[in-house]
Nucleic acid binder design. Structure first.
Lengths: 201, 201
DNA sequence: GGCGATATCTTGACGCTGTCAAAATCGACC
DNA sequence: GGTCGATTTTGACAGCGTCAAGATATCGCC
C-alpha cells in the first residue's frame, strides 16, 4: 500500500468524491462544507487543510469535469471509425450536449458564474479550461479546412461564436428555460445546420 | 394623494429600487434581505410583508429587466427609420448584447440558475419571460419571411437555436470566460454572419 | 528507540444568512 | 371610541464559511 495519510487516510479524494455525489443529487447549493465534512465523517474544519476555501473545492470539481470532457473530445477525434468530418462535428456536438445534460451541476461549475465571476478560478483550473478551449479551436480549424465550417473568420472567432451557440443551448437546457428536453435533439440539429451551412456566398 | 401605506409609505417599490442599486454595485451575492432592509431603514423582516421570499424579490427584479428588454425590442421593431430587415436584425443583436453587458446582474437573474433552477419563478415572471420569447420568435419569423434567416426549420426551432447563440455569447461575456470584451464586436459579427448566411443550399 | 517538527484533525467561536412566531404599532372603518 | 386588519418590530433558530487554538498522530532524524 502507498504512504497512507494520518488519521483518515486519503481524505482529499474522499472529499472530492463525496462533494461530487452531493452536488449530483442535491445541486451545488446543497453542498456545504459542514455537510460535506459530516458525510465523510470528519469535523467541520478538516477539509480546510486540503482546500484553502470552498471555492478551491469547487474549482477542483470543475477541473475534474474539464478532464472528463477533454478525454471525451480526444476519444471522438482519435476514433479511426468516424466517417467524414461533418459526422465528427455532429458527434462532438451531441457528446457535448449530452455531457452537459448528464452532469448539469458539474457543467455549471465549469462554466458558471459561481467560480468565474463570484469566486476566483484556481490557476490550475484556468490552465485546464484554457487548454480545453484551445482543443476546441483546433477542432474548429480542422473543420474549416474540410469545409464543414466556413473560414470567412479566423478559427478563434469561429470557435468563440460556435462555442457560444453550444454553451447557450446547454445553459438554456440546464436551467430549464425556453428549451424542453424533448425538443433538444431537433434544436441541436438546427444549431449544427445553421453553423455548418453558411458558405462563403 | 393615493392610498399611502402605513409606517413607511411605498415600501415595496423602495425595496425594489434599493435592491437594484445593491446588485448593480455589489452583485447578486452582495444582496441580502437584512442589508436591504437596513438600506431602506426598516427592520429585518419588514420586507417579508411585501415579498413572500427572497426568491420573490429576485423575481420582481428579473421582471423589471424583462420589461425593459421588451420595450427595447419594441422600439427597434417599430422604428420607421430602420432600413432593411438585415439591418434590423443586426441592431437587435447589438442591443441585446449591450443590455446584457450593461446590466449583467439583472441579466443573470433573468436567465440564470438562481431563479430558474434553484428557486421557483413567480407565475408573473414565467408569464413575462414567455411573452418575451414569443416576441423573439415573432421577429425571427419576420426575418425568415424576408430571407434574412433560413426557413428550413420552424420559426420556433430557429428562434431557439439563434437565441441560444445570443445567450451563450452574453453568458460567456458576463462570466468572463473565453470571450474578452474587446473582441465582443467581432464575435457578435461572426455570430450574426453564421446565423444569417445559411441559405437553403 | 526517542524526539522534535510537521502535517492533520478537533473544538470553540464569530458574524453572517433566510425566515418563522409573537408582540407591538398604526390606519381606516363602523 | 373601539375594533379589525394591515404593517412593522423584536426575538429566536438553524444553518453557513472560516478563523484561532489546542489536541493528536505520523514522519524524519539522531
Amino acid at each position: 500500500m502507498t504512504t497512507k495519510p494520518y488519521h483518515h487516510g486519503e481524505l482529499r479524494p474522499a472529499l472530492v468524491n463525496a462533494a461530487n455525489a452531493i452536488i449530483r443529487e442535491s445541486g451545488i447549493e446543497g453542498l456545504s462544507m459542514r455537510r460535506l465534512a459530516d458525510q465523510v465523517g470528519v469535523s467541520r474544519t478538516a477539509p480546510y487543510h486540503h482546500f484553502k476555501d470552498k471555492n478551491a473545492l469547487l474549482c477542483a470539481i470543475a477541473e475534474m469535469g474539464f478532464k472528463e470532457q477533454n478525454s471525451m473530445t480526444r476519444e471522438i477525434l482519435d476514433d479511426p471509425e468516424n466517417g467524414n468530418s461533418q459526422a465528427v462535428f455532429n458527434r462532438w456536438v451531441r457528446a457535448y450536449i449530452r455531457f452537459a445534460h448528464e452532469n448539469p451541476e458539474t457543467y455549471d461549475l465549469m462554466y458558471g458564474r459561481e467560480i468565474w465571476k463570484g469566486g476566483t478560478p484556481t490557476p490550475s483550473l484556468q490552465q485546464i479550461s484554457k487548454a480545453s478551449f484551445r482543443l476546441w479551436v483546433e477542432l474548429v480549424a480542422k473543420m474549416q479546412a474540410h469545409g464543414v465550417l466556413p473560414d470567412r473568420h479566423s478559427a478563434l472567432r469561429t470557435g468563440q461564436a460556435s462555442w457560444a451557440a453550444l454553451h447557450g443551448m446547454a445553459r438554456l437546457l440546464i436551467d430549464g428555460i425556453y428549451i424542453e428536453r424533448e425538443d433538444l435533439e431537433e434544436i441541436a440539429e438546427t444549431v449544427v445546420d445553421l453553423l455548418t451551412r453558411a458558405p462563403a456566398d
